[in-house]
């Protein structure tokens, strides 16, 4: 798959603070790219730089191979739909009037607008003033506005923010439907769970730096689950395994970050010392744990 978005050393500094730090992003064409990171990680700032809403301090953004900056933004933005931070919309206008704004700005035909409204499932509320919308409806209006120009790339910043579980699920299915038509979707979230099942590729940001970029399988493989040693003599075993960083945890010995070879060495040592072992296992971990570990390390 060729990359639709690439960045090289993308950096943004505010005052002396580096909030996005040397990002090398690669978003393959036609995929859903889940852009993850805790609050303040720099997701919104990065997305704003992709759209040239914010100018990078250094580094560059390429969309479909072409450099994105203030002189090229107009041409490139005609192929991008976006929803950044809070959903747009004018409260004193109805949903339909808000859509007409976009129609006039982008010179769209009625069919394109109607399709976007239907895709976002907004048709039942379209004639009400937007100020009477629930957050979920506003979010869907934002999506419809972003979709109306039938963009090749959609950049959605926390589109599931404020949605109930049913709304989140609907958002997931909407994103899936869109990629079915060949649209590339970059979607950010601070919750792995929100994008885990939709995203083909994950990018995990922490403190402005890219902590991981790849598929969820690659993410799983990257993290080594803790080894748990079950024994009748946990104190002695923990002392012996101290060199491997073992800790006592509710009657079992927990050894974090141990590779296969090191695990074999540890077991051999314990057996050699005559410790009665009755179990050596890996703790099964959820992707959520892996994500939490990754971003927690960065926070320290």
């Amino acid at each position: 798959m060729s990359a639709l978005i690439t960045t090289h050393g993308l950096t943004k500094r505010y005052g002396g603070r580096t909030v996005v730090d040397g990002l090398d992003l690669r978003v393959p064409e036609g995929c859903v790219y889940g852009f993850l990171g805790p609050n303040g990680a720099g997701k919104t700032t990065t997305m704003k730089m992709l759209l040239s809403l914010v100018r990078p301090t250094s580094g560059e953004v390429r969309i479909a191979g072409r450099r994105m900056d203030r002189s090229t933004r107009r041409g490139l933005l005609s192929e991008i739909g976006s929803l950044i931070e809070s959903p747009p919309g004018y409260g004193h206008l109805t949903g339909a009037e808000n859509m007409r704004l976009v129609q006039r700005l982008l010179r769209l035909d009625d069919g394109q607008v109607a399709r976007a409204v239907r895709t976002a499932r907004l048709q039942d509320h379209i004639d009400r003033p937007v100020r009477t919308y629930s957050l979920g409806m506003k979010q869907r209006l934002g999506i419809a506005m972003a979709l109306a120009g039938e963009p090749r790339l959609l950049v959605l910043d926390e589109p599931a923010n404020g949605l109930d579980p049913a709304g989140i699920d609907e958002m997931r299915r909407l994103i899936r439907r869109l990629t079915g038509d060949g649209t590339t979707v970059m979607v950010s979230s601070h919750l792995l769970d929100e994008v885990d099942r939709t995203a083909d590729v994950l990018g995990i940001l922490g403190g402005g730096r890219m902590l991981f970029q790849g598929t969820r399988e690659e993410l799983f493989a990257r993290s080594v689950p803790d080894v748990l040693v079950d024994t009748f003599e946990p104190e002695r075993a923990a002392a012996l395994a101290g060199a491997w960083g073992a800790v006592l945890d509710a009657g079992t010995v927990r050894v974090p970050g141990l590779g296969e070879r090191e695990t074999a060495r540890l077991v051999a040592r314990l057996v050699q010392e005559g410790v009665d072992l009755h179990g050596v296992r890996r703790e099964t971990r959820s992707l959520e744990d892996v994500f939490m570990d990754l971003t927690r390390e960065e926070a320290l």
Binding site: R73, L77, I80, S82, S86, P88, H92, V102, L105, L106
Partner: peptide, 18 residues
């Protein structure tokens, strides 16, 4: 006034409009 709000502001400049 309405265009100073985050979402609208970003949408205004996030479209192919000079």
């Amino acid at each position: 006034r309405a265009d100073h709000r985050g979402g609208n502001r970003n949408a205004l400049m996030g479209r192919p409009v000079s």
